[in-house]
Structure formats: C-alpha cells, structure tokens
Design a protein around this nucleic acid. Structure first.
Lengths: 242, 242
DNA sequence: CACACTACAAGTGCATTCACTTGTGCGTCA
DNA sequence: TGACGCACAAGTGAATGCACTTGTAGTGTG
C-alpha cells in the first residue's frame, strides 16, 4: 500500500497539466501527496495505458530529468512499482516494465474475483453493526439516480463499500491485497474504464451485498459479491481496461 | 492505543549496534543483495517475531543509526514495508507498525488458501510440458527420505513447486501476490516455523498436485493444493508462525 | 490549575554528491 | 573481417546536506 493509501485520498489528481516543454509535464507538489506518490501514479498510469509497454526501460536518471524532480523520489517510486510486481529490476541493473503489463487491469479484476468474495464472507462475520449502518446510509444517499452528479457519488460508494468490507475481513494481508487492487481500480476509473451503465447495475449488486452482510450470512455475501464482480466485467469483455 | 515506545531508545535496541560489540552485527553488504534488502529483511523479521509490536514507531533516523547505514536505504526499506501494508505512515509522520502485525504469518497462510488453489487450477491449463517435467524430476530427487540433508532439499522443492505454479497461472498480479506470500513463508522457515513432519506430509501432497497439473485437471489440482495447505496448518493450529 | 503560546529538538522529504557497476563504441590484432 | 580489449559514457546504490514539518518541554497568562 502506498503512503497515502487508497483510504482517504481518493481525489486523484488529473493527468493533464500544462507542459512546460514537450514530452511529459513537470511534476508539482500536490496537496497532501508526496512527490513519490505523484511519480508513482504517473508511471503506473503510463504503464497500464500501454505507453510504456512490456520491456521498456525505466531509467531513474532520465525519468528524473523528464519529470523535473530529483532522482530520489523516482527511485522510490520505482521501488514501489517493483514491489507491485509490474516492474522488475536486478541489482545494479535498469528497471524494466514486466512483459504483459498491458493486461494488468483485467488481471487485477480476476484477482479481485478470488479475494473479494471470501473477504465479504469473512466481513459478514466480523463487521460491526455501526459499519453496516454507515453502509446502509451511504447506499440510501446514492439511490436517487436522476442526479447528474450521481455517477461520482456512485463511484465513491463503490469504493467505500468494497474497502470497508476489506477493512472488516479480519485478515490484514487480505485487506492489503484488496486495497492494492482498488488502487488500480482507481486508475481504471481515471482512464475511463467504467461507464454509467456498469455503475447502475453495480448499485443493485451493492445493496444485495449489504443485505447479506447485515444478515450475517457468509455464503450469500460471497455469492452476491461474486455476481457483482462478474456483472462488472461482463459489460466489457474485450477491453484492456476493466 | 498505547505506543509502548515510552522511551524512544527502548523499542529498537538490538537490531544493530556499533561494530565494537560482538554478536549484533552492523549490516554489511551481502552478496547480491542491496542494503535496502538487508534492512527490509531485518525489520520484517523483528516485526513478525513480535519484537516490534503493533504501534511501535519506526524512525528512519534512529534505525539508520542503529543499523550503521545511512537513512536512504532505511527509508526505502520502510517504503517497502508500507507497500506490504504491515507498516503504515502518513505524510511527514513517523512510520508505525500496524496493529495486529503479530499475526501476520498466520494471516498470510489464510491468504495463500485463497490464492494458491485457483492458481494451481489455472496453472494446470497454462503450464508448459517442460515445466512439468522439471517438477517431476525435482520431486523424484527429493524422494529419498533417509538423507540427513533431506529437510533442506524438501524445503527448496516446496518453494520451487509453488512458485512455478504461480509463474504459470497466467495472471501477473496473482503471481505477484503468491510470491509475496512466499517471501513471508521464507521468513517462517527462518524462524523455525516448520518441522520435518510437516514437510514430510507436505511431500505427498506435492506429488498429488504435480499429478493433477500434469493431467491438466484444474479441479483436482485446486483440491490437491487446498488439502496440501490445510495439512500444513493443521499441525500447528495454536502457533503464531505457520 | 488549566490552557495557550513559543522556542527548541527530532524527524521527514527531497536534492545533491560520490563511488562503483554496467553498457558501448572504437581501436587493435589475429 | 571478426573477436578481443579498453576507455569512456551512462546508470545505480548509498551517504550527506538542507529546508520544512511535527512533537514537546517550558513559560506565561487567565
């Protein structure tokens, strides 16, 4: 998980900035985020978009020049990408984008299919009553579909529900893995991977999950979660971004 | 909430000392490993052993002093621990060990139970014939149980099998998650978490898995893997280290 | 005594610097 | 011509320096 993990700072910064010179825009200090976060995020976006395809070399010196920062935050950002496994590096060698990184987002979705249903089942046993109430309230607020800003609110509820279930699954590494998936999921949103129709259908699934969790029914919670995830992907089986 | 680092000097004593004291070594450059790797590994071992309990503060300045290295590799090692989720940090704040980190290894084992059976099922479809042959050969070599060095060889085969299946599951993030689990599994070995009997029983399970994978039978492969993992944990249900 | 304010110590984030390793082009020689 | 070797360019790992932020003890004030 990154420094300011997916938890509170979901307001992900825009990608396009006024470029002071051709190529890549200079990085400036964003609020609440370190330069490392910023560099990490940019590189990740470029990788999953396919601009940096598998095998591309990521040289800290060049990147620091292009991004207008020193090598230190670049090296740390690369270190995170290596921890994610999307970039590899051997001692004293240049970092390279792992072949197959273009499919990362769809594979992340498949991984969620393994992690989140069991997590929902576990959460149904461990989650507090207060947390359930919070989810119910949030879900009710999202309900009015006519609102033009509904899309954004539905997206936030999406995050809130899934991450809250992860929080209460009583297994820290599992929680961490799900959070990591949702960090990429955030990227997917930024890159326009989701559409209103998906979120709409997702909303119904969300309420089923909440109901099952409230009923303390692990099997139903897991099944509802699995259905929810399969629905989300069934809309765009061909795309790289899910 | 009690941070038990009442005095800042207490919580981290013994990781490393000035080189004059024998027994507790300064970190030196190990072959093929960077200082970052070394620091990361040491901190992780102390955390999962419970010496650094949840809530302990990890200050880069103190750690760099105690370990006899500069702050740079310490900061990067902390960054990795944060990425693992076993340590948390907010901007400009000290890193702290996440509460509940003492149970990390057993929770990792639970996570493996979610990841590895599906990975084995997928691997049965995607793995190459050559890889299967390699596994069969390695398995046959491990067979002679009388050898006193059998333990070490069985351990290596354990790693080889599980990681090779992860390699061939055709999902990079899943592969990465399993690798991460096995990094912790390695720690578990170092800390004496496994015994000969476990490995012995594990060996039989391994051959069932290889057979199912060779037969290209995903269900059986997944079932064999799940049984294998449950056996491994059933021997020590009470311990913290699995 | 409780509370706010202040100065100082401690810590973090980032830039810069240096030593060492790796890649590469070019000249030498078989 | 092609293999080898060598010097130089480029890159990485790690240490150090500096500016800024956070924690804290101490002081003054109601």
């Amino acid at each position: 998980m990154s420094t300011n993990s997916v938890t509170s700072t979901h307001d992900l910064t825009g990608i396009g900035e006024p470029p002071t010179r051709p190529g890549i825009a200079r990085i400036e200090s964003a609020a609440g985020q370190s330069l490392v976060d910023e560099v990490y995020h940019r590189l990740l976006a470029r990788i999953v978009r396919g601009e940096l395809s598998g095998g591309s070399e990521l040289k800290s010196t060049q990147l620091s020049d292009q991004l207008g920062v020193s090598r230190t935050p670049v090296v740390q950002a690369l270190s995170r990408l290596i921890a994610d496994g999307i970039v590899t590096q051997r001692m004293n060698m240049r970092a390279i984008v792992r072949p197959g990184a273009e499919n990362w987002l769809v594979e992340i979705h498949e991984l969620r299919l393994l992690l989140e249903p069991p997590a929902a089942a576990r959460a149904s046993q461990y989650i507090t009553h207060e947390a359930i109430e919070i989810l119910e309230r949030s879900g009710a607020e999202v309900a009015p579909l006519a609102d033009p800003k509904w899309f954004e609110r539905a997206r936030q509820f999406d995050f809130q529900l899934h991450l809250m279930l992860a929080d209460h699954c009583d297994n820290q590494p599992l929680r961490g893995a799900i959070y990591k998936c949702w960090q990429y999921k955030g990227l997917s949103y930024e890159l326009g991977g989701d559409e209103t129709q998906v979120l709409l259908r997702g909303y119904e699934g969300h309420m089923s999950i909440v109901a099952a969790v409230k009923a303390r029914d692990p099997q139903t919670a897991a099944a509802a979660m699995e259905l929810h995830l399969r629905h989300a992907s069934s809309y765009r089986p061909e795309k790289r971004i899910v």
